[in-house]
Simulated scan of single mutants.
Amino acid sequence: MLRKLALVAGGIVIIALAAFWIVTMPQTIDAATMAAMKEGDANRGERIFWAGGCASCHAAPGAQDEARKVLSGGLELVSDFGTFVAPNISPSPQGIGDWSLQDFANALLKGVGKNGHHLYPSFPYTSYTRMQPQDVADLYAFIMTLPPSDKPSEPNRLAFPFNVRRGLGLWKLLFLDNGPAVDLENPSDQVKRGQYLVEALGHCGECHTPRNLIGGLDKSKWLAGALSPETGSDGKKGIVPNITTGPGGIGDWSAQDIAYALQSGFTPDFDSLGGSMTDVVANMAKLPDEDRQAIAAYLKVIPPHPDGFERH
């Protein structure tokens, strides 16, 4: 009897492990998505590059001006799950010089690296998954024109169980969704453009939306502000502000105020945007004014929320 029970238990374990292995298998883009991509336009890709904030994480820490186009990596993101280190994504052997467009698209749209492993969502593919395929191709074309760096990528420093990438397959089932973050009724073309810039390319929700215990975004509080996903050197978390028009947010800002802040870094009350927003402004300032106006139009019409964090 005990032997039969042991066999049954062993069979259940094997079935469970097999099921886990199947459901957590990395998923790659389909043939139809690849077929939708024409040859990339590097000139157009530069606009995608700045809108996507690639330099903010992948340029060397402290890089300025043209040096921000050298994507050697090295920025450390300290979180509750461990320390993530931004990799070299320059067009070199140490970076992604040997990546095909399909490899690149799998990373952005599916969160899967060239080696077929799940990527950690410190790389915001949960937003980039909403990118239009041709934008992916154009971005790839631009990055391949940038200066190569021979700096090796540094490994992440994560403890068990977060160092087991396979488990990310379950996390993706819960949180990797290429649908819109918010449903808008009859949005104008300008608002649609703003939604794409905020929800996909700009990945604003990755910092401005609170997360649950396992790191998923709480979309019921979309852009309501949050504790920073990063931990400071003092062991404390900063506050990422509410950018909806709800209490504590930017309800008293006009669309022009928002667009100007994204270009200049100055708020309507003569303060300045600081912290990681300085990099965001450096990126946004390189976009055409129509894109900043579109972002502003979107932020003015999304659902308002009170702060998604507690003020002390």
Score class of each variant (00 low, 15 high):
Leu7Phe: 15
Gly10Lys: 07
Gly10Ala: 07
Gly11Leu: 10
Gly11Arg: 04
Ala16Lys: 11
Trp21Thr: 14
Met25Gly: 13
Ile29Ser: 01
Asp30Ile: 01
Ala32Asp: 09
Thr33Lys: 02
Ala36Gln: 07
Met37Ser: 02
Lys38Val: 04
Gly40Val: 00
Phe49Ile: 03
Trp50Met: 01
Ala51Ser: 09
Gly52Leu: 06
Gly53Phe: 08
Gly53Arg: 11
Ala60Gln: 02
Pro61Cys: 08
Gly62Gln: 07
Ala63Ser: 09
Gln64Ile: 10
Gln64Val: 10
Asp65Arg: 14
Ser72Gln: 12
Gly74Pro: 11
Thr83His: 02
Val85Leu: 07
Asn88Cys: 01
Ile89Glu: 01
Pro91Asn: 03
Gln94Ala: 14
Ile96Cys: 11
Trp99Ser: 08
Asn106Gly: 00
Leu109Val: 06
Gly111Ala: 07
Gly113Cys: 02
Thr126Val: 12
Ser127Met: 04
Tyr128Cys: 12
Arg130Val: 11
Gln132Cys: 10
Ala137His: 01
Ala137Lys: 00
Asp138His: 05
Met144His: 06
Pro148Val: 03
Asp150Ser: 05
Phe160Asn: 04
Phe162Gly: 01
Trp171Tyr: 13
Glu185Cys: 11
Asn186Tyr: 15
Pro187Cys: 12
Gln195Asp: 05
Ala200Phe: 11
Leu201Phe: 04
Gly202Glu: 01
His203Ile: 08
Gly205Ile: 12
Cys207Arg: 00
Thr209Gly: 05
Thr209Val: 06
Arg211Glu: 08
Gly215Asn: 00
Leu217Met: 05
Asp218Val: 06
Lys219Gln: 12
Lys219Arg: 12
Ser220Glu: 13
Leu223Glu: 10
Leu227Pro: 08
Glu230Gly: 04
Thr231Glu: 05
Gly232Leu: 01
Ser233Cys: 08
Gly235Ser: 06
Lys236Ala: 09
Lys237Arg: 04
Thr244Pro: 04
Thr244Ala: 03
Pro247Asn: 09
Gly251Phe: 08
Gly251Pro: 09
Ser254Leu: 04
Ala255His: 07
Tyr260Trp: 13
Leu262Thr: 01
Phe266Thr: 13
Phe270Thr: 12
Ser272His: 15
Gly275Met: 14
Ala282Ser: 14
Ala282Cys: 09
Ala282Thr: 10
Met284Ile: 04
Met284Thr: 10
Ala285Tyr: 09
Pro288Cys: 01
Asp289Cys: 05
Arg292Val: 04
Gln293Gly: 10
Ala296Asn: 08
Ala297Met: 14
Lys300Asp: 15
Pro303His: 12
Pro303Phe: 10
Pro304His: 14
His305Ser: 13
Pro306Trp: 04
Pro306Met: 03
Asp307His: 08
Gly308Val: 00
Gly308Arg: 00
Gly308Ala: 00
Phe309Pro: 03
His312Asp: 10
